[in-house]
Design a binder for these strands. Structure first.
Lengths: 152, 152
DNA sequence: GTAACTGCAAACGCTTTGCACCAAG
DNA sequence: CTTGGTGCAAAGCGTTTGCAGTTAC
């Protein structure tokens, strides 16, 4: 899905779920919808403040909470701490993340549902959710200086 | 591996890596080595304080850091926040966690390495690490009151 | 007009650090 | 004896909350 279409889609869902569209929220939505990398609340704040100079960090947190509830973004857990967010591909949570630049790629991995089924039988667990994440270095970062961070 | 053997194993590695064995550290090691559930630093602190009454929370953090570096425990990321720790099965990071009681089960999932290989070809990523985690309700918790927490 | 939303500042909780004392080896 | 480890207290940091003013609808 192209970024512009995604933003329209988000605005649609956002408004029809009863949320008011304000400059602060629009700025956050634009930043997150147009990014294909994992972003921290602070990164989102800094980027969104260019579009809405009076923006406060608090509004970023509150908007992210709404977006997470609407399933428009998903939380990404990283080796160190964990408050990264990325726009959520429909239904999938299988991510490939570059530890150098933060770029993220969704991929298909339907064999996971088979695995879930066998776990259910084997251990008697009722499976609610799963999480598959790969970390590595993307092609671009491999060809550059490995210690050159390229966060957007 | 039985818990007692694991503790011995840990003490072995711990000491031969140059770390001194103190009452505080022993208490933390005993608690974590003998548990098969995901534990937060605070839970570990409370349990370990029974064995070493003068224990400080700070020592728990410091000991966990050492254990993580020695790969004896692994960090578990949970939907909400993420500072859970569990003793690490050798080489495997595939976990099945009960969201009710915290019990964790390691399982085999070697198909993940195949998947990693295909991702490498498809997207050009150099894969460094992966993470597969299932969340659900274990058999015991299914048969009990679902809202009855049973944290150890 | 009104309820939802805002930014600010302060509170909060978890984690880390500085330090003087202590004990493992 | 020496160096690494301890607990305490305080600092640090990211996140959340209370609030009075503001704005989308």
């Amino acid at each position: 899905m192209p970024s512009s279409t995604r933003l329209d889609h988000w605005l649609d869902i956002f408004q029809s779920s009863g949320c008011r569209l304000t400059p602060a929220r629009l700025a956050v939505l634009e930043v997150v919808a147009n990014s294909s990398t994992v972003l921290s609340p602070m990164q989102i704040f800094l980027a969104a403040r260019n579009r809405a100079p009076r923006l406060g960090l608090v509004s970023v947190y509150r908007t992210l909470e709404i977006l997470e509830n609407l399933k428009l973004i998903q939380r990404v857990h990283q080796p160190d701490g964990c408050q990264g967010f990325i726009n959520a591909a429909s239904g999938h949570q299988h991510l490939l993340i570059c530890v150098n630049c933060g770029r993220a790629v969704y991929f298909e991995g339907d064999d996971v549902t088979e695995l879930a089924e066998s776990l259910k039988e084997k251990f008697g667990f009722h499976i609610l959710d799963h999480w598959l994440q790969f970390e590595g270095i993307c092609r671009d970062c491999q060809s550059k200086n490995p210690s050159d961070p390229e966060k957007p």
